[in-house]
Design a protein around this nucleic acid. Structure first.
Lengths: 247, 247
DNA sequence: TTCTCTTGTTGAACGTGTTCAACATATCAT
DNA sequence: ATGATATGTTGAACACGTTCAACAAGAGAA
């Protein structure tokens, strides 16, 4: 066992040019780099889909791509960052699609279901590995957490979908609650996705059931929330949110 | 690089005598074993408290205890299992205490706060490492998940506290909701603990605030839930729970 | 061309949780 | 006491994610 004392150098190139959450992406995207990156990315997703996140090794990914182990880390800061890149892509490529799909629906319940369905539809082929994103979920300091500053862009997009869905619906939301609603709906969506990821029923029917039931509940809740009787409860909820949100 | 092909033997002792979640505990607890186990356990907790879960190495634990690395694994199935053992201990040693503390309170809000306060009080010195328990939380198949079959005993104890707290309170809970309430309260407690673990405010004051606000909300909600108007919403909630609970 | 600097690539080494076959010690029937 | 079996202990080896110093390839200036 050679006790090689490694000199830990202080300055490295990559610490400077880190740009997105996705990883230590090189500053200039030359054609070669772009290509290598894409090849690594695609090998990775293929393997993730086949064997799941845990079962796939960075060595697998590198060797399938035909690069050295270290190569993967030149493009992605970590194994999980690859999954995050996928989620970014997903959000990117479906933003318009979701907003368009909404046009056909008037009722709030339908509009929300529309957004959720679309999301699940796109997530479906990748169900086996998306749970990786929730591994460190509650720690908002972790860049990969859905609550982190680093994932704000992705999150904001998603919230925007839900805002549009809620605003165009047939239900009048109380003025004090309205501005908070999109964020709440996003939390609701997050919970559903989490349930779906671990749903072991065939074709994830239980998630479908849960979605229907919970949508019904949600809409009823919103309807009722407008009643004068509900004012104190609404105040309760808003205070709660205030407390949670204050950084 | 010596390519040592290791013969993977098929039968090992430990696979047979595994008894609790806590780890592959030996069948007979001899005095020596008991002692070694405790020493490992205590070193581990000390280190966890000092440096947190991630920063503490199994090698640290072993060497601090004065045993070989493998020794730790003779008593604990994994690093996380040590934390679970701690949580078991906690539950064990405080069951009575919590039930007694409840005696002094009549109002539901006070009774619930009493249970929660006690829990946090006991968890407090160990805040730095309890998050380890939530690492694989949503996967009910993982033995260490709070939802797993393996942790049922711990969970049931906790739910029992909350059942007693709710039953002795001053608020009449609707008959259809009452049997489900303890489980719901347990989920509520889980959420609070999760928030607390990652609460970075000084002395975790935000958690205290959140507790007060949410307790107020909860009690108001229960009060209102008895109104005839609320029958359909209650039905909604119960259906929801049914869907989630069906294995 | 040749020299320099940026960009891209390599693979050995590290630190980690975990496993396991070998060894050591205790327990107990004969 | 002696062997046999159960119990406890060891440390090397494994597989994995990750890091990094060294090297190679390309682009641009001289």
């Amino acid at each position: 066992m050679t006790a090689t004392t490694k000199t830990r150098s202080t300055i490295t190139r990559n610490t400077i040019t880190r740009s997105t959450v996705t990883g230590s992406a090189p500053a200039r995207n030359t054609a070669r780099a772009e290509d290598t990156r894409r090849r690594i990315y695609e090998s990775a997703l293929e393997l993730f889909r086949e064997k799941g996140f845990e079962q796939t090794t960075m060595r697998d990914i590198a060797s399938k791509t035909g690069v050295a182990l270290g190569g993967a880390y030149y493009y992605f800061a970590s194994k999980e960052a690859i999954v995050l890149a996928f989620y970014e892509d997903l959000q990117e490529s479906t933003h318009e699609a979701i907003l368009e799909a909404l046009q056909g629906h008037k009722k709030l319940k339908d509009r929300l279901r529309c957004v959720l369905q679309k999301r699940f539809e796109l997530l479906e082929p990748n169900r086996k590995f998306c749970d990786a994103l929730f591994r460190h979920a509650p720690d908002a300091q972790d860049p990969l957490s859905p609550f982190s500053e680093a994932t704000r862009t992705i999150r904001d997009r998603s919230i925007e979908h839900l805002r549009v869905a809620a605003e165009g619906g047939d239900i009048k939301v109380p003025a004090d609650l309205a501005p908070r609603l999109p964020h709440l709906l996003w939390l609701y969506q997050l919970a559903l996705i989490l349930f779906w990821l671990y749903d072991r029923s065939p074709r994830q029917e239980r998630t479908q059931q849960l979605m229907e039931k919970s949508l019904g509940f949600l809409v009823n809740l919103l309807r009722i929330s407008a009643l004068p009787l509900m004012k104190p409860l609404r105040r309760n909820v808003l205070e709660l949110l205030e407390t949670v949100a204050s950084a």
